[in-house]
């Protein structure tokens, strides 16, 4: 290869050598934009939130944003624990509902469904992902929440008497806007993402493993239990973590159906609050310390979701490497 010759002729005839460098620079800077934006998010928001990020912010659950008497015993206090608690509860409910359902659908798609059915089911799940979260929220607040109240009351009557567990199923708030409704709505919204990733993971299970299980006389379920699930465990865990990230950040639907009550209670049928919901609800009239503390919650949310997403990527990637090794 005569590299020198080639460049020599090209440089003489082709003024495009500068274009090449320019294009490269354009592309690199576009790629770097991602890093810049993420860095800017953290830096700019931290800078605005710094005055609010006190010890009290992270350890107190007292939230008194506008106290008429500034110097009184109830001076404005911005403890964020209540909202963190709500976010955790809603995410846990959402995962408990969404994970088995998503894995079930993914198994149905990869192991059970005939090819013709598969296409339309995938389309349905895609549609589920396409519905904007505010539409789910609207449906949740106007239709689902009131409709679920009798169910909650029945659950309270049947399960409320059991010690410890019963405290989860306490009195129902009459509007039906509570942790449970929020969790269920979020569950619907994270089903598509967990399903699609689990499906990809299940699809990587080597055919030979499955056939080996069948050859040993396994039924379909025994094959799934013995060949598919162990092989794809890591990937599914990654999918679940990704779903968790989405659940924590879900804002509008939760803001609509969680009931907006600043309280920490084990009762899942009571109204509560969540981090993203409080930001979007209170931001309109916010200034000064309140705004700083809301942005501070944004920072907390950002760091939480980034951590969760990074963890998910690591888990999925590690599982991918292992699966490729096993498949080859």
């Amino acid at each position: 290869m005569t590299v020198v010759d080639k460049t020599a002729t090209l440089t003489r005839k082709d003024p495009g050598r500068h274009a090449d460098r320019l294009f490269w620079a354009l592309c690199v800077s576009a790629g770097l934009a991602v890093l810049v934006i993420l860095g800017l998010i953290l830096a700019s928001m931290l800078q605005q939130a710094l005055p609010a990020l006190t010890k009290e912010f992270f350890t107190s659950s007292t939230w008194v944003p506008n106290d008429p008497d500034e110097a009184g015993p109830l001076h404005p206090q911005y403890g964020s624990l209540t909202f963190l608690y709500g976010t955790v509860i809603v995410s846990v409910i959402a995962l408990l509902v969404a994970v088995p359902v998503s894995i079930g659908i993914a198994l149905f798609l990869t192991e059970l469904a005939p090819r013709r059915v598969r296409g339309s089911v995938v389309l349905l799940i895609d549609l589920l992902a396409a519905v904007p979260s505010v539409v789910f929220g609207l449906w949740g607040i106007l239709v689902a929440a009131p409709a679920l109240v009798p169910v909650y009351e029945w659950l309270h009557d049947t399960l409320g008497g059991i010690p410890v567990v019963g405290s989860l199923f306490g009195e129902t708030v009459t509007s039906g806007r509570n942790f449970m409704t929020a969790g269920l709505i979020v569950a619907i919204m994270i089903i598509p993402i967990i399903t699609s990733i689990s499906r990809e993971v299940f699809a990587t299970v080597p055919n030979s493993d499955k056939q080996a299980a069948y050859a040993l006389g396994a039924t379909r379920w025994e094959m799934i239990k013995g060949a598919v699930l162990p092989h794809s465990f890591g990937g599914v865990v990654g999918a679940v973590i990704l779903g968790l990230g989405r659940a924590m950040g879900e804002t509008i639907a939760v803001a609509l159906v969680i009931g907006s009550a600043v309280q920490i209670t084990p009762n899942l049928f009571q109204s509560g609050y969540a981090l993203p919901a409080v930001i979007v609800n209170l931001f309109g009239e916010a200034s000064g310390d309140l705004r700083a503390s809301l942005i501070g919650m944004g920072v907390v949310l950002f760091l939480l979701t980034v951590a969760v997403n990074l963890l998910a990527r690591v888990v999925v990637r590690r599982a991918e490497i292992r699966m490729k090794g096993a498949g080859a």
Binding site: V280, N309, R313
Partner: peptide, 23 residues
């Protein structure tokens, strides 16, 4: 960049709103 783009997909939309508000 690839990993960070993945992470950025997971950033909640409300955080993006706050970011644009601040900046």
């Amino acid at each position: 960049v690839r990993t960070m783009a993945d992470v950025m997909t997971g950033v909640p939309s409300i955080v993006m709103g706050l970011f644009i508000l601040v900046i």
